[in-house]
Each structure stands twice: as structure tokens, then as C-alpha cells.
Amino acid sequence: MANISALNQTAAGFDAVSDQLGSGPRGKKPRRTFSGRNIVIYGTLFVAAVYYLLPLYVMVVTSLKGMPEIRLGNIFSPPVEITFEPWVKAWASACTGLNCDGLSRGFGNSVRILLPSVVVSIIVASVSGYALANWRFKGADLFFSILIVGAFIPYQVMIYPIVIVLRELGIYGTLTGLVVVHTIFGMPILTLLFRNYFTSLPEELFKAARIDGAGFWQIYFRIMLPMSLPIFVVAIILQVTGIWNDFLFGVVFTRPDTYPMTVQLNNIVNSVQGVKEYNVNMAATLLTGAVPLFVYFVSGRLFVRGIAAGAVKG
């Protein structure tokens, strides 16, 4: 009985389908561009985008206005009369304490800090990551665990002992000292990054190279390095932005004449002497932010990959 009625229903359904053939819905389902759903999604995203873009916009317009216009107008209005004088002043003649040669000095210092720090920290970390990934020995993982746990320790806890050690070594306040500090504190994240990357490469490749008789450095330089360009780019992005944006180590480990750009910027803007020149301040702020912003906009997806790799897998 049940079987027969089911059969009948199927047959009826079949008829209904054949009735509709040619007349019912067909092909792609039409969609409206301005559905309620889309308005909510794009509306929210647009409002959020405005919030995120606003400060950049304010920085730019403020830095292009003269002081009189700033005093009269509102910070969101575009400049009536565009002037590049604040930029020139911020770069070449803004004062920090007794020095009045602008941010150019800090920029130079930051570059001189950045280049060796990035190079040294990445070399050290990539070799460590490679050794950890492919040449495991007893105890290595213990040190690595300490390193990773150490990444969570506030820098403030470790800063003073480092000051003492660097002073004993005679490199406190020097460029070398700061490079060492950046290498040390870049170590956890970078080593993790490289270790995870090298671990993700097929282990059989490493085995094949060992059977081919290649040693530690031969495998590193001839097999691993040529395959690791992307991760090196990610590491460079991470370090360039990180070191450029550093403030704490700059303050602690350099002297006023070797202050990096961030420290100098803060001193210019937050100095209590003299009249506040907001346009110069914003130009200086933009100048300092320009390097990481440039890196960010140029690298795009790799930047995202870098922070995601560093963060999620951690």
C-alpha cells in the first residue's frame, strides 16, 4: 500500500514538473544589487572605513594648512591654501631641545639602526629556525619553549639587566648595542616564523639532501634558502615595520644625538616649549609613519600573511 501511494506521488510530481517545463524559473536567479542585506553589509563596512581613514585624512589636510587657517577652520575641512612649508620645517628645522635640524636627523638614525638590525636579526633567526626544524637534538625544544614563553614577558622586566650587560660590554648607547637588542627581541617571533616555515617544507627534501651528502650549511644555502624567498620577505616586512616603529628601545638604548625617528617625533610634538605648530606636528607624524605605510601598501598580502603567520600559529 505504502509503496503504491509513494509511487503515485512520484508520478504526480513528475507530471507537475513536465507541466512547468519551459515556463517556470530558469537559469540564473535574479539578484538585486540594492538588497537590504547588501545595504547593511556595505553600509557598515563603509562607516567603518571612514573611521579608519579619518585620522590619515586629518593628518594630511592639517599638514598642508598654514597655522592661521588651522586656528580659524575645522580640522576636517580641506586646506584652502595648500602650503608645503610645514613639511619642509618638520624635515629640516623643527627643534628638539637644542637641536634644530628637524626630523632628518632622526630619519638618518632610524635608517642606520634599521638596516643592520633587520639583516642581523633575520640571519640569526633564520639559521636558528632552520636548525630547530631540521636538526633537532635533545634539549633544543626546551630552549625554544623558553624563547617563546619569553616573548610574552613584558620588555620592562628584562630591560635593566640588558642595560647592565651592554654597559659591561661597552656597547651601551651605541648602534651595535641597539642592533643586539633588536636581534634579541626579534628572535622569538622570527625564529617561530622560520621554524614553522622550514617545518612545512617536505621533510623528504631534507632527507634527500642528507643522502646526497650535503651538510648543515650546504643544505641551508643550497636547498632551503632558494625555497624560502617568500618567508624572508615576510620577515623583512615584520622587522622593518617593527624596528622602525619601536620607541621603548630607542629611548632606553640610544643617546639624544642618536635617537631614532619615533623618539625624536615625540619630543618635537610633545615639547612644552614654544608655540604649538600643529601643521608641522602632523607633517612630522606623517613623515615618521611614511616608511611603514609604504612597506604596508607595497607588500599588501604578504604583510597580512606575516602577521597571521606570526600570530595564529604562535
Binding site: P202, E204, K207, A208, R210, I211, G213
Partner: peptide
């Protein structure tokens, strides 16, 4: 490994 007089072929080929 290199001194054992062996050659090895892997599942994933492991070509450089």
C-alpha cells in the same frame, strides 16, 4: 647517510 652506499627514492619525489 652519505657514507652508507645507499640511494633513496621518496614518496613525494623530494626533488629540489
Amino acid at each position: 647517510p652519505k657514507d652508507r652506499g645507499i640511494g633513496m627514492v621518496f614518496q613525494s619525489y623530494a626533488l629540489y
